[in-house]
Design a protein around this nucleic acid. Structure first.
Lengths: 333, 333
DNA sequence: CTGTTAGCGCTTTCAA
DNA sequence: TTGAAAGCGCTAACAG
């Protein structure tokens, strides 16, 4: 079953079938119709591999992430795919699993499939692998790392603004003693968030209590332990900001364990706005890092590079926004 | 840059290059070495599309799921991919988003890519789309739905056994008044679990209290509300079994809200064992439905069909296992 | 063991 | 507007 059979049934040449499939405007409406009917009756599906080979275009974008089981990524993948499929493109997803060998495999797969561009949404990526891609003139877009170059764009997340809006939210509610639970310090994005917190507090002239920052691990258990430590201090914070939502969930558990109520006794703010955050009890106030927005931007960045004459990359910025839910409230008077 | 350039540099024919790439044993070790070096220096990556076209094999399996943001799936996807990549196969992932139109697109993509088999891990799938695949002799494997046929295998989850082991666990701890929070009743798997619970209780001669079963929605909010209702009853259960882990998380929140402790005042058991369950406070005792096992089995099922002469499908069974953590304990004496 | 060559199914000039 | 035919890069007979 192939394009020739369709051509035969429709009594046209294979070229004409190809043209109608690809929506060329140089085919009579009625010829098109005949071809379409032939395709229909034969239940013909054009062979993507042959199409890619014949045209030299894969109609496929690569998406490299570190780990699909990290709750940050599924929504990103979904949005990326949604938009791509809408535009008739496919997505080749690859997990690096934080593993060097897997990274090489991922890049090799992209190269072998001749993808039209790659969105690299993990900060851990070897320089030489990037070269491998970029030297072949494959458009690249990075999340949260590197700087624009020829053929390479970047999406930077304005963590400072995100943390700022959270701190401001708490300040308005009357909180002055605010704690912070960071992510693991070996993670760049975690360090950036921590720094943003410290600077935001300074800017707002809020006192940074001694020991008001604890390190978590971006998982619930880390958040739980860090919060427990925070609650054991002399000066208990009346509100706590966390480096991601999972940490916030863990922190909430630790707070309940002490018999305290949220937000009556203490307010909690997360970061990321993963899907679950809307369903915790109380629903988590958090800083949204729109995965849909990131995905859209990434795809656009890739296409912009393709279209552009110079191929020069651009830096795009994502502004996080505050999602007010029920885990924050005014300080107990 | 193609196989011919490599051939030229290595001073062999393209066939020999192809043979070494494909690990044929009919090439001298030294010739192989020469070719490998040529590949290395040219940084040559064989074009997958051309390979697929030339050989007639795509070396790719399709994986259809309903929604990657459902926490059940990421681990499944990861395991499936891990095993496939290990075997030199690729995976084409497709989300149906519970949408009929998307389902058609998903199937069309599989057909267009000429995949070697499709694992359909979502119960919602139109009959005519299945025919579309199976009439083309594409091996299929379903999770938790349908029966084996020619070219179609099935993986059935032994929910009854899973629920049974959970109930038994609670009975041993001294619980006799056990509640159940089900999933949404319009979901087959949720109905099956609910039924399994009722039957297990009967089998163990445990009294099913009036109103001891509440309906949730497989999300935290539903679990929270259902648990709140359960706690409002005259006869409070001393333990509660839930239809999935998310429901259990919600239930735990409701219990804390009442000022009760887990497992001191009430034991909670989940179902699925998603990654988060190990990190809640207390860590959730739950019935594990190993996604890794499902993924491996699915891939094996596909390959078994390919290899088999008759192509007759088989029914495989998955046994859930109890993971004892800290959300269950003996009844208060 | 290695080379020659005819496809795989589609796209895309170039002619008509 | 349509058709003929030459590839796209690789694989797999078939020869040698």
């Amino acid at each position: 079953m192939n394009i020739r059979e369709v051509a035969r049934l429709a009594k046209v040449s294979t070229a004409t079938v190809s043209r109608t499939i690809n929506g060329s405007d140089k085919v009579t409406a009625e010829t098109k119709e005949r071809v379409r009917r032939a395709i229909e009756t034969l239940k013909f599906y054009p062979n993507t591999n042959a199409r890619a080979l014949g045209s030299g275009k894969s109609s496929m974008y690569g998406l490299i992430i570190s780990d699909i089981t990290n709750p940050f990524f599924p929504e990103l993948v979904k949005s990326f795919e949604d938009v791509a499929v809408q535009q008739g493109q496919e997505v080749l997803i690859a997990n690096t699993n934080y593993d060097k060998h897997r990274m090489e495999q991922c890049v090799a797969r992209m190269l072998q499939r001749k993808v039209d561009g790659v969105a690299i949404m993990t900060s851990e990526m070897e320089e030489h692998l990037i070269d491998e891609l970029s030297s072949r003139k494959i458009p690249l877009v990075f999340l949260d790392t590197g700087t624009p170059q020829k053929g390479i764009s970047n999406i930077v997340i304005d963590y400072a603004a995100g943390i700022d809006v959270a701190v401001e939210h708490l300040r308005r509610l009357g909180h002055t003693s605010i704690g912070f639970i960071s992510g693991p310090m070996d993670l760049t994005s975690a360090r950036v968030r921590r720094k943003a917190f410290i600077e935001s507090m300074k800017r707002k002239e809020l006192k940074l209590e001694k020991d008001s920052i604890e390190e978590g691990n971006h998982r619930m258990d880390g958040g739980h332990e860090a919060m427990a430590r925070l609650l054991g201090k002399e000066v208990r914070p009346t509100a706590v900001l966390t480096s991601n939502d999972m940490t916030a969930f863990g922190a909430m558990g630790a707070i309940y364990e002490k018999g305290m109520k949220i937000p009556r006794d203490i307010s909690v703010v997360g970061f990321d706005d993963i899907a679950m955050s809307a369903f915790t009890q109380p629903a988590l106030t958090t800083v949204r890092l729109s995965r849909a927005e990131i995905a859209k931007l990434a795809l656009r960045a890739l296409q912009d590079i393709q279209k552009s004459v110079t191929g020069q990359g651009v830096e795009y910025s994502i502004q996080p926004t505050l999602v007010e839910r029920n885990s924050t409230g005014p300080t107990a008077a």
